[in-house]
Design a protein around this nucleic acid. Sequence first.
DNA 1: TCAATATATGAATAAGTGTTCATATATTAG
DNA 2: CTAATATATGAACACTTATTCATATATTGA
Lengths: 115, 115
Amino acid sequence: MGCDHEELHRAAAQRAKEQMPSEEQIAGMGAVFKALSEPCRLRILLALRQGEMCVYHIVEAVGGTQSGISHQLRILREGRIIKARRDGQNIVYSLADEHVAALLELACTHSHCQV
Amino acid sequence: MGCDHEELHRAAAQRAKEQMPSEEQIAGMGAVFKALSEPCRLRILLALRQGEMCVYHIVEAVGGTQSGISHQLRILREGRIIKARRDGQNIVYSLADEHVAALLELACTHSHCQV
DNA sequence: TCAATATATGAATAAGTGTTCATATATTAG
DNA sequence: CTAATATATGAACACTTATTCATATATTGA
């Protein structure tokens, strides 16, 4: 079994095993990517690159129903992808940190989008 | 409706609408993130950062069944996240390009993993 | 050609997820 | 306190997706 004539692959597999992140770390990374994987959520995040916004304006910017957007916002909030603060009657959302912005930036350049 | 006392948000929403990527671009970005979102696939990609590997060694590095890994490899291949080449009896896989490596790098630093 | 090995694939099932509808909570204005 | 507005939540359904099992394809060596 295996391609034993390729000692290089065996060594790579060995290194990979040794420094494979923990179960929790893998799950954490996966959660971030999953949050970014649905079109609706991605739209919300791309919109928030323009600055913080309340729910009403997010709905205006990305379309869809208030309820649907709110559900997605919850997922993004729980995944620490965005953060929320209350301002009177409104909840104002914004990107959580620079890592998120960087991921979006990378995805955009990879897809040849404008900034 | 809306927080009309916040002209800033309205302006951000307007900018967001104007430069929202196209349907296809959104779908494309989402597909990449989705490919990276499942623990098993993420493990495969993290392993491939150590260098190209054939299926046998990928299974050895990340665990799971040959069939399961093969299914995930197909998804990654079709999403252009990895590339494959045949070498005799073996198929050798590697990360598709630098963008993928960069995304993994970002996720790792964000999760405080070693390189 | 045949046997052995490496990898891929199809079908089936089980679990996860997005969306919608109705309703609940919280804040402000009167 | 009441009405109005902004946002969140729960349940239900349709849809997608991962995993497993069995089997198929492709390559090598004899």
